[in-house]
Amino acid sequence: MPAPDELVTLYSDKVAKAGDLAALDAVRVEALGKQGEITQLLKTLGKMDPDTRKAEGPKIQGARMAVADAIEARKAALENEALEARLASEKLDLSLPVDETPLGSVHPVSQVMDELSEIFADMGFAVAEGPEIEDDWHNFEALNIPEAHPARAMQDTFYLATGEEGAPPVLRTHTSPVQIRTMMREQPPIRIIAPGRVYRSDSDATHTPMFHQVEGLVIDRNIHMGHLKWTLETFLKAFFERDDIVLRLRPSYFPFTEPSAEVDVGWSQVKGRRVVGGSEGWMEVLGSGMVHPKVIANCGLDPDVWQGFAFGCGIDRLAMLKYGMDDLRAFFDGDLRWLKHYGFGMLDTPTLSAGVGA
């Protein structure tokens, strides 16, 4: 059997001449495999006397390590050569279209909020926000709804536990507290809309415990109902993208407006579906009125100098009317099939509105 140093010379030469990974692996098996020469030489150590084993063991182990290191080095070199050859021969055609990447969808409620913001921005309104957990004063008292007022029974309120004395905080039942906070923070003239989430303990096909509402407020000198009607008519024409919008204001009651009016809009049948526009019938879409003098006074303004109007409607209901949805509860079910059907692609959303005056 060849000596260890001879085996190192022999297999180092074979390793250097291996032209590919397959040939290199064959050399590894020949030298270090179960029946390889160096492996067989290692097996002879058990038959040697202690002194001979002590002298020959390091030489054989050194030969094994030297050949193994040579194989690893040659393997790395061959892999690098293979990679260089692949990079030189393969091409990536950047002109080919890539596979479509799944994109998220814009929820119809978010879409309608964007439309509302755009339309009212064209009319000079700013967007105002406020907390969703409100105190009793902002949610009720300042809006002319004292503790014993029967109007509190009109809103099924979520009350939150509190360790403090006094009325507990509530999940806001409307976005009207934003109007109060704005009037107390800013000096007139004021033109704002307040979109956001609101909460009432109610659930059926047309009501959910959490829903979205937008309210509008204008405070200025010499404001009257004519300004309110023009604003709502202009908004609805732009939102529904129809010029044949007809409004009807019916006397109503809200504690924070006087006089108050429900706003009905004309509808017509199109391909068996009721759509907003025309005058075949009427449907209620908004509540509105002139801001009550007590509300203006509660915010530190003089009602003899400043007047205003306010209006409010459900954003979810507006989405249902414009985009043909029939069940409010589906907005919050988290069903991706529903969102795929009704949602708007982030890159191909429809025109936000017809535009004011379009």
Score class of each variant (00 low, 15 high):
residue 294 K to D: 15
residue 13 D to M: 14
residue 58 P to W: 10
residue 86 R to Q: 04
residue 329 R to P: 15
residue 186 E to M: 13
residue 269 Q to I: 15
residue 336 L to W: 02
residue 101 T to I: 15
residue 237 K to F: 07
residue 287 G to R: 02
residue 68 A to C: 04
residue 222 N to S: 13
residue 244 D to G: 04
residue 337 R to T: 15
residue 220 D to K: 05
residue 143 L to I: 08
residue 8 V to E: 06
residue 60 I to Y: 02
residue 145 I to D: 09
residue 218 V to C: 12
residue 167 A to R: 15
residue 136 D to Q: 02
residue 34 K to M: 12
residue 193 I to K: 09
residue 260 S to M: 03
residue 317 R to S: 10
residue 334 G to L: 06
residue 215 E to L: 00
residue 160 L to V: 14
residue 199 Y to N: 06
residue 299 C to L: 05
residue 257 T to S: 02
residue 345 G to W: 04
residue 118 E to T: 02
residue 243 D to R: 15
residue 292 H to T: 00
residue 146 P to N: 00
residue 341 H to V: 05
residue 74 R to C: 08
residue 43 K to Q: 14
residue 129 E to V: 12
residue 181 R to W: 11
residue 90 E to W: 07
residue 156 D to I: 08
residue 121 A to I: 05
residue 47 K to G: 15
residue 69 D to E: 02
residue 170 V to H: 09
residue 154 M to R: 00
residue 353 S to W: 01
residue 267 W to K: 07
residue 344 F to E: 09
residue 267 W to V: 12
residue 100 E to M: 11
residue 257 T to C: 03
residue 253 Y to I: 04
residue 292 H to C: 05
residue 73 A to P: 03
residue 323 Y to E: 10
residue 271 K to G: 08
residue 98 V to Q: 04
residue 233 E to I: 10
residue 233 E to R: 12
residue 102 P to C: 08
residue 193 I to V: 04
residue 262 E to T: 06
residue 295 V to F: 04
residue 178 V to A: 03
residue 341 H to N: 15
residue 222 N to H: 13
residue 295 V to T: 12
residue 324 G to M: 03
residue 10 L to S: 05
residue 351 T to L: 10
residue 77 A to S: 07
residue 32 L to T: 11
residue 331 F to D: 13
residue 268 S to Q: 15
residue 350 P to H: 04
residue 14 K to M: 11
residue 26 A to I: 01
residue 96 L to Y: 01
residue 218 V to N: 13
residue 224 H to D: 13
residue 340 K to I: 04
residue 92 L to M: 07
residue 306 W to C: 14
residue 303 P to M: 07
residue 326 D to L: 10
residue 185 R to L: 14
residue 91 K to H: 11
